[in-house]
């Protein structure tokens, strides 16, 4: 387990302009995030959670400020280098599962791995292992249409974890799921942080998730209002069925 600083963000500012109205979403926000921790980003809609997630993960350029991820100045990289950085170090789990309808579970996981040039055997091994980790080995030949919402999200998580990223970003991963599936997803994310030393940053409204987080950042109006550590959160260490 690593507790080294994985992400160091300083003085982030971002505003969006719609028509003639400019809205400030982030105002001088600074934050450090550590590996091996599951950090929750909570707050009301429009408080800037998703924007912060997008800026820290290299998807959206800030108007001002800097982001250093794994020692790399993310926003000084060109588009290609940034893409390569995301490929090798970052995993994403989105609210919509965004799975290709034509592919079965194992192929969904293999797809992003195939851009890492690992070779067919290693790609398959990692995909199978990731599905095992989210408890879906027995469903690996099924397409999204044959999976439940919770299972789809677990496939999406396996797709993100199979790359063995040091940074994992999740946006409302449980909001479309029932309570049992939501709990399962939370446990998986937590285990990813604990066992692989991954920095997991999760934007969510879900109060269940808060109880499981190592750290909770409460945001409002583009600022962090509260930064709380939960030293011993409940963890389900046994594999998910």
């Amino acid at each position: 387990m690593s507790t080294a600083t994985a992400i160091r963000a300083r003085d982030l500012a971002k505003s969006f302009t719609v028509g003639k109205v400019s809205t400030r979403v982030l105002e001088g926000l600074s934050v450090d995030l550590a590996g091996g921790e599951l950090t929750m980003l909570s707050g009301p809609s429009g408080c800037g959670k998703s924007t912060l997630l997008a800026i820290l993960s290299g998807l959206e350029r800030p108007d001002a400020g800097s982001v250093e991820a794994l020692g790399e100045p993310v926003w000084y990289l060109n588009r290609k280098a940034l893409q390569r950085f995301r490929l090798h170090h970052i995993g994403f789990v989105f609210q919509g599962f965004n799975l290709f309808p034509a592919l079965n579970a194992v192929e969904q996981v293999e797809l992003p791995l195939s851009y890492l040039d690992l070779g067919a055997a290693e790609t398959r091994r990692r995909a199978e292992a990731a599905l095992e980790e989210v408890g879906l080995s027995h469903r690996r030949k099924l397409r999204p249409a044959e999976l439940s919402g919770g299972e789809k999200q677990r496939v999406a998580i396996a797709r993100a974890l199979a790359k063995q990223p040091q940074l994992l970003f999740a946006d409302e991963p449980t909001s479309a799921l029932d309570s049992v599936s939501g709990q399962t997803v939370i446990d998986i994310l937590h285990r990813a942080a604990r066992q692989h030393g991954t920095m997991v940053l999760c934007a969510s409204h879900d109060p269940r998730l808060i109880a499981h987080a190592d750290r909770v950042l409460r945001m409002e109006d583009g600022r962090v209002l509260a930064d709380e550590y939960h030293p011993h959160p409940a963890v389900a260490e046994e594999p998910v069925a």
């Binding site: 998807l59 390569r84 995301r86 989105f94 965004n98 851009y115």
Partner: peptide, 18 residues
């Protein structure tokens, strides 16, 4: 129709060219 899936793949590091 598959734009979110393509965007996800891009987020995970697949290049535009790919």
């Amino acid at each position: 129709g598959s734009i979110s899936e393509y965007a996800t793949l891009n987020a995970l590091g697949a290049s535009r060219r790919a």
